[in-house]
Amino acid sequence: MFIIILCAVIYIAIEVPAFIKLPSIVNIISLTAAKLPIALGIAGCIVLTGTDISAGRVVGLTACISASLLTTTFKVFPNMTSAPSIALVILIVLVVGAVVGLVNGFSVAKFKLHPFIVTLSTQLIVYGCILMYLKNGTNNGQTLSGLTDGYRNLVAGTLFKIGDTAVPMYVLYAVILTAIMWVIWNKTTFGKNMFAVGSNEEAANVSGVNVTRTIIMVFVLAGIMYAITGFIDGARIASANANTGLNYECDAIAACVIGGVSFVGGIGKISGIVIGVLLLQIIFAGLNFLSVDANMLYIIKGLIILIACAIDMRKYLVRK
């Protein structure tokens, strides 16, 4: 996959030289930073040989909550006169993400349901919550906008400039989250237990690992990462609606598989996830430079996931 994408990037750079100029590179880095938290969250579910297709809708719900509270026009809550503190809103969205993750993890761990079925159910539930939430007050399902300057500056403000090109603040947040997740995955008992459960659940249980708690914690952590993505996305896009976060989980899963997180379980690295997200954003940005039909991107995403999973399974069978 790396070789195929590298060849594609070289071809795009030759066809459209602007693709490798500074503004384009900074844009790719910014898009990578925006999509990295959700990929870091969903990767843990894949390590457990599962997945989480509710991720995009959780991003949408938390983005809508953030945009409805940190705004200058309170359409969802018309009785409010001023925006609450940003810290309080962050806490609210983190709790919302964690609750969805808790439901997913508890259902998978306690009821032994397949993660696909569980997260398909919560995806529909969360989407229904989004639609009802946007109907509150005088909003009537419309797009939420008019965000406060404090919220916008905190997320999308300028971190520093390279020439005349600004690097947004959320790039820093993505770096911090990546470092935190690296420590969790590699330097904590929870991280070791996660890989043990993903490799062989029965063996992990016999070895004294609390399998139920580990699975629940993985999904809760994933939900928190989705919530952070939603909070960032609300300010990054400067609006939120029922379609915010749509298909984000597809991009995240594709990035994880490209980055070496295996669906056979117990295999994956944080560095691989970062590279996977970066490569995916490079190829999508390149296709936009080539003026490829936006509808074709869905076909390409599907092919990337299919080919990457096929290669991964082939490697697993050869090792086995």
Rank of each mutant, 00 (worst) to 15 (best):
I42T: 09
C256Q: 09
G266N: 02
V16P: 03
C129S: 12
Q281E: 15
N243S: 15
L134A: 10
L69C: 01
G50D: 01
L287P: 04
N288M: 08
M181K: 05
I282A: 11
T165V: 15
A55K: 06
A254R: 06
M217N: 09
L221P: 04
T212D: 14
T189E: 13
T158C: 03
S68F: 08
S121C: 14
V211F: 03
A98L: 08
G266E: 00
N136A: 14
I25F: 04
I184W: 06
S121L: 12
G50M: 00
V292D: 06
T51V: 12
V95L: 13
W185P: 00
Q281K: 14
A174N: 05
T212W: 05
K21D: 13
L290F: 02
I232Q: 11
I307H: 08
L113F: 10
G223V: 07
C250T: 15
L306V: 12
Y133C: 02
A308H: 07
I14E: 13
S262R: 09
I38D: 02
F263L: 08
K135N: 14
P17Q: 07
R152T: 15
K269G: 11
F219N: 10
A98T: 08
A18C: 08
N79A: 13
A203V: 00
N205L: 02
K35R: 13
Y170R: 06
G128N: 06
V261F: 04
G56D: 03
T119Y: 05
I237W: 10
T71A: 08
S207G: 02
T212I: 13
L70N: 05
I10W: 10
S107E: 06
Q142R: 14
I275D: 00
C45V: 10
K161Y: 00
V318D: 03
G230H: 02
G101Y: 09
I253A: 02
S30N: 09
L48I: 01
Q142S: 15
M181N: 11
G157I: 09
L131R: 12
T81L: 11
S68R: 03
G146P: 08
V100H: 04
V93A: 07
I305S: 05
E201T: 12
C64T: 07
I300T: 08
V58I: 14
L113G: 00
F219V: 09
A179E: 01
Y226G: 03
L102R: 00
I162D: 01
A222G: 10
F74C: 05
L94G: 05
I4V: 15
S207V: 00
L177K: 07
G141F: 06
G41S: 03
A174R: 04
G286L: 00
T165C: 06
N295T: 10
N139K: 09
I12Y: 01
L94Q: 04
G128P: 04
L31E: 12
C7Q: 11
G302M: 04
V118P: 03
